[in-house]
Nucleic acid binder design. Structure first.
Lengths: 153, 153
DNA sequence: ATAAATTTTGCATAAATTTGCACACTTTTT
DNA sequence: AAAAAGTGTGCAAATTTATGCAAAATTTAT
């Protein structure tokens, strides 16, 4: 996996796990984890990931993943070509939207390559219902699936 | 005080109507509308309203309301579908039964008109699996969907 | 009504974020 | 293999946003 993709996933992870209030804090966490990067790059990364500073329940500023788990226009262009449009969660379930007709094929890829994290999938024409195994967090599922999609390209 | 409430509403309105990319732009709009206010106050107002700079579909920065209210009355008269037989819940999932062959069409209507509340649908021939977004109660889902299909019965 | 308490606001400035530019690195084309 | 095109990055500076503080406005209590 390319270094940038790895870093983007790490950012998602950090932002999910920690209360990050500014890019300086994020920068420190990333450096802690061995990423040699600057605040300017993180600013661009966050823009690409569509992660913005929001207000949490206490009314304090914090970086948060939007409800949209990922949107391939933000990811590598290759993701779009394989046909994944979006991935979102509701409760323990994930729903992936794909190009029309692609759901079955992509679901088969997920079954074949992510069975350790994914209990099963049900595909329609352009929608896949993804049932994660117990014990996998959303961010883990997102990372696994986005890595999988990255690999397919 | 009353003035502040009025201003907060005006901010919501402006942010919804115009593509506001920074507080300076918002400031100008507000002054245009006769509000005598400063950027500092707008910063505080936005914090109170929990309106933050987000990224739109073009990947450009823009202030956005996070919780757009779904308004069924806007959608109700655009839906003229028949064929829904039942709607029942199991956990967070809803299952709609339709006349044979209608599931796909009705699911498309739901996707098109209730995306605010429905994360996704998967249609077979006469059954639609409906996955509500988090934060929507069964009653809300029922109301939204029955508004959508009220012309049926 | 007056005083006290609370909230709101502007000013100035600190803090935080974005971006132009130049260069390094990668991929594609010829 | 070299040239061209595209991508990613750091640096420094510009832009944008948040906030401490004191004053003004508003609300509440006496």
């Amino acid at each position: 996996m390319k270094n940038k993709v790895k870093r983007l996933n790490a950012i998602r992870q950090v932002v999910t796990d920690c209360k990050i209030s500014n890019q300086e804090e994020l920068l420190n966490k990333m450096i802690e984890q061995g990423y040699d990067v600057t605040q300017a790059t993180l600013s661009r990364d966050l823009k690409q990931l569509k992660i913005t500073k929001s207000l949490d329940n206490n009314g304090e500023y914090r970086y948060l993943l939007t409800n949209l788990a990922f949107n391939p226009t933000n990811e590598a262009d290759t993701v779009k070509t394989i046909g994944v449009n979006s991935l979102e969660f509701s409760g323990q379930l994930a729903v992936m939207k794909t190009r029309s007709g692609y759901a079955g094929g992509i679901a088969a890829e997920i079954d074949a390559h992510a069975a350790d994290a994914i209990l099963g999938t049900i595909a329609g024409d352009d929608t896949i219902l993804i049932i994660p195994r117990e014990g996998f967090s959303r961010i883990e599922i997102i990372n696994i699936l986005s890595n999988l999609i990255e690999h397919l390209s």
